[in-house]
């Protein structure tokens, strides 16, 4: 299983006021809020943790097909921040989702996988929608809206996760 999420930081700054009263409390646990407030650039950590939760949610949705908005049930743990990257784990009632993130001045991207091995997936990030395609494959969604990459010739389908935000598109699939 796989999930990925991209946040255009300029777009996020325009569209969301994370300092709005009640905003952080509805999305983040107390520990997560403390981690945000202690950060050098709190906005980056807001969007890092959000993209971790979103990528884990997409992975969970692929598994059970249930749509829900329950960010507090996706708990970010073990966040290891390095310059430009982060690793972590998002825990739900039933599963662990291992995350690896890229943090740039322009975007935050997170890939979530079942195992702590980001080498088993390919990620393309682009600033144009057209480039977010994989030659030889088409994207098909099932009846629950879960996307798959279908090979044009063989018809084989492999799991894929697609994310758009602002100027960016990201596509991630298992090798």
């Amino acid at each position: 299983m796989i999930g990925n999420d991209i946040v255009d930081l300029a777009c996020a700054a325009r569209e969301s006021n994370w300092q709005r009263r009640g905003w952080l409390q509805k999305l983040f646990t107390t520990a997560e809020q403390e981690y945000i407030h202690a950060a050098e650039i709190p906005a980056h950590i807001v969007w890092l943790l959000w993209s971790m939760k979103e990528s884990a949610y997409k992975m969970a949705h692929r598994k059970d097909g249930i749509s829900r908005f329950a960010p507090l049930q996706l708990v970010c743990t073990d966040v290891q921040l390095q310059p430009g990257t982060a690793r972590g784990c998002v825990i739900t009632a039933s599963d662990y989702h291992y995350t690896s993130s890229r943090i740039t001045p322009d975007f935050v991207h997170t890939l979530a996988l079942e195992q702590n091995n980001s080498g088993s997936a390919t990620v393309y990030i682009s600033d144009s929608m057209e480039a977010a395609t994989i030659p030889g494959y088409v994207v098909r969604k099932n009846d629950k809206g879960v996307p798959g990459l279908q090979h044009i010739l063989t018809g084989n389908i492999r799991p894929v996760s697609i994310s758009h935000h602002g100027r960016f598109a990201a596509i991630a699939y298992l090798d």
Binding site: A12, S16, R20, W23, K26, F69, Q73
Partner: peptide, 24 residues
């Protein structure tokens, strides 16, 4: 990410508190 703004705006407009279970 704007779903939370919708929830907060609905709380203000209708003067209700939407708990996490309902928000889900």
């Amino acid at each position: 990410a704007n779903l939370v703004d919708v929830v907060l705006d609905v709380e203000e407009a209708f003067d209700v508190e939407i708990d996490n279970e309902s928000m889900e």
